[in-house]
């Protein structure tokens, strides 16, 4: 199967990362020296990965084909739903690690900083993002949340 075209989602990802950064300026303090590290976020059940650089002055959230992963400092891998629940404060990263549902490679300290920065964000990041896209965004989130619920009860 040919790799999916990613150009369509790049502007969406840029809007998402800018929104999270604007809403939560305090989170960058927790990144310490790793604010300009490159993280690969790997939803293992999707055909692409995300590259994140949480530098408030030079933010980057980019989708990349699996055969086009750039040099990076750390990589976090898990299922898309687990990663979404993790970012949303619904799942504990250590518990996912114990269950072997989350894999970390590269600079562990950078990942710990990123995790703590995201975990200090109150409320639901997913909800704030879905609001950006109006009714279709909220509908998409509803579908994901139902999948999350099924995931939890399994």
């Amino acid at each position: 199967m040919p790799p999916p075209p990613l150009f369509a989602i790049q502007p969406v990802l840029r809007r998402i990362v800018n929104r999270v950064a604007t809403d939560n300026p305090d989170m960058f303090g927790r990144l310490g020296p790793h604010y300009n590290a490159h993280f690969v976020i790997d939803p293992v059940n999707l055909p692409f990965v995300l590259v994140l650089r949480p530098d408030p002055d030079d933010l980057l959230l980019d989708a990349r084909q699996r055969n086009d992963i750039p040099p990076h400092d750390a990589k976090v891998s898990g299922s898309f739903l687990d990663l979404l629940m993790l970012v949303d404060g619904d799942l504990d990263g250590d518990a996912l690690f114990f269950a072997r549902d989350l894999t970390i490679t590269g600079n562990t300290e950078a990942v710990v900083c990123l995790r703590n920065a995201l975990d200090d964000i109150d409320g639901s990041i997913a909800e704030n993002i879905s609001d950006m896209f109006g009714p279709p965004g909220r509908a998409a989130l509803g579908i994901l949340r139902r999948a999350k619920q099924r995931n939890k009860s399994e």
């Binding site: 404060g89 619904d90 799942l91 504990d92 518990a95 975990d119």
Partner: peptide
């Protein structure tokens, strides 16, 4: 568990 997440 101060090192754990708010979910924990």
């Amino acid at each position: 568990g101060r090192q754990r997440s708010r979910a924990y």
